[in-house]
Nucleic acid binder design. Structure first.
Length: 512
DNA sequence: TTCCGACAGTGGGGTCGCAAT
DNA sequence: ATTGCGACCCCACTATCGGAA
């Protein structure tokens, strides 16, 4: 199959807003694909590279290359070239990758170049990624969409399922069962603004502490343990103490879901930055493990002794977990039966925060484990802080925000009347607010370099955020975590905005 | 007919490891 | 030795479609 055909379909998919039409277009293309094209066509149309990381970003993509007049590239040839490109390493590799990318782009037509660029930067912007590709795959093969979706979640890979389905047909889906040693996409949580809201929605539920660490899925098969992240990366080699802990448990074969986190000597959680730095260390693991040991803390069991527990209610999965894992290695929790238990749930949240944790997750005790879904049966509740900050500048947006000032630079007052930038945000803005702020900030503009528009510091905006973290990037030595706009405060003047001192005083646990 | 769940899009900061300077 | 870049952790929020109620 020619790359030009993919690029054309991608453009058509992007041009329609109807999801059903996107699905139909993808299904048509999948039916056209030959067996050997499938491992490439499917991920490409889902906006992904089968190779995963390639070491190609904006820098390596370099300057635009004159496009070819006629399409000639096949999808398999492109895949082979990208595989070769990903294998380049060592000194001079960046220049070599740049050269190979230039060669590939030179062989592509204008439309193919646009598609390849989106693919390589992870921004296909066609309004269809995995979920729509799954629907398209179902449409192309006549398999029930729900079955295809489930198989993808259990295989942890769209490509694997697509290959089996397109070559063997719907019966192939039977093969995709929960298997110890093969990671499944983890269940995710929605947010709720309060414990009362969460308990109100779920009724009989468990309230569990939410640890600010790294999600981990632990697979043990006899003496073999494997550890996977939320995106199913294998991190077994980085966390020997977690492997050891899994081998200490009583069961021989299981799959558990939990969090790894570093605690200090007093048993209080260390900062997310410290835990994440440790888990990210790959080279000298022994030294990193000595400096920042981490512990697994589990909250769910997906499989025990060869029994798949995914469809059991959470109450039963947790009973299995409790049989297998001693209490200190489980997340603290309390069970609440409806609104009457609300005071207990709120007290549990307060205690959890006092112990230094992030918040709680409220879970429906009757719900199955919805792999890969952000099910409404898990609701996280975290405290939200707000500040009144001053807009110092804004950046021109991309994609659907092209032509709008989007990303705000946020400043807190210093005593001398200057401003210290505390971070940026583009979140929480409606289209109407985006339009309004673009107009308003242009009136206040003092300069525009094509990317950043600097403004007179006159506009006050209320910002919600999850906490402070240390920063080497910003002058106050701290930055806001997960900042988002609540509303503009046109009733406030810049001199009414929060100061660096008040921000720091509100978070005594974080020192710049 | 209205409501709401699921998705895609728009990017944020930090850290690590590797290559370039 | 330091800097730049890419990958991958953590993540909030809005707009939209289409099935459920």
């Amino acid at each position: 199959m020619l790359l030009a055909r993919l690029a054309q379909v991608s453009r058509e998919v992007a041009a329609t807003s109807a999801r059903s039409r996107k699905t139909a277009l993808l299904a048509e293309l999948f039916r056209e694909a030959q067996a050997a094209d499938v491992p490439v066509v499917i991920p490409y149309l889902a906006g992904r590279l089968p190779q995963g990381r390639l070491g190609v970003g904006w820098k390596v993509l370099g300057r635009p290359v004159a496009p070819a007049a006629e399409p000639s590239l096949t999808v398999r040839e492109v895949d082979a070239r990208l595989t070769a490109l990903g294998e380049v390493s060592g000194p001079g590799s960046q220049a070599e990758r740049t050269r190979l990318v230039g060669e590939l782009m030179g062989a592509a037509t204008q439309e193919e170049q646009r598609f390849l660029l989106g693919l390589l930067t992870g921004e296909v912007r066609q309004g269809a990624l995995d979920a729509v590709a799954v629907e398209g795959l179902a449409g192309a093969t006549g398999a029930p969409p729900a079955d295809v979706r489930r198989a993808v979640m259990l295989a942890g890979s769209l490509q694997t399922v697509a290959q089996a389905l397109l070559t063997e047909g719907p019966p192939a889906l039977e093969r995709f069962r929960l298997t110890v040693g093969r990671p499944v996409l983890p269940m995710l949580a929605h947010s709720a603004s309060s414990v009362a809201e969460a308990v109100g929605k779920l009724g009989v539920c468990a309230v569990e502490e939410k640890l600010d660490g790294i999600r981990v899925q632990v697979h043990r098969d006899g003496g073999t343990v494997r550890l996977y992240t939320r995106t199913l990366d294998d991190i077994t080699g980085r966390l020997p103490e977690v492997t050891a802990a899994a081998l200490e448990l009583r069961g021989e074969r299981f799959v558990l879901d939990g969090e790894v986190i570093a605690f200090d000597a007093d048993g209080r959680p260390r900062s997310f930055q410290e835990t994440a730095g440790r888990v990210g260390s790959r080279v000298d693991v022994a030294t990193a493990a000595e400096a920042v040991p981490v512990s697994p803390v589990f909250f769910d069991a997906l499989s025990v002794d060869g029994r798949d527990l995914l469809d059991l209610p959470f109450a039963e999965r947790h009973a299995e977990l409790a049989r297998l894992v001693p209490e200190p290695m489980r997340v603290r929790r309390t069970v609440v039966s409806g609104p009457g238990g609300l005071p207990a749930a709120e007290e549990f949240l307060a205690e959890t925060l006092a112990r230094g944790h992030e918040g709680v997750v409220v879970k429906d005790l009757g719900a199955p484990y919805s792999a890969g879904r952000r099910g409404a049966s898990w609701l996280k509740v975290k405290p939200v802080h707000t500040l009144d900050l001053v807009v110092l500048a804004a950046e021109w947006g991309h994609g659907r925000r092209t032509g709008r000032l989007s990303n705000l630079h946020l400043g807190a007052r210093r005593e001398d009347g200057s401003y210290a930038m505390l971070g940026k945000t583009f979140k929480g803005l409606t289209d109407a607010l985006l339009a309004w702020q673009t107009e308003r900030l242009r009136e206040l503009a003092v300069s525009d370099d094509g990317h950043v528009v600097t403004v007179r510091p006159e506009l006050v905006v209320e910002i919600a955020y999850d906490g402070l973290q240390r920063s080497t990037r910003y002058p106050a030595g701290v930055t806001l975590r997960f900042a988002r706009v609540v509303r503009y405060r046109e009733d406030k003047r810049p001199q009414d905005a929060d100061t660096v001192e008040t921000v720091l005083a509100a978070h005594p646990e974080v020192r710049p």
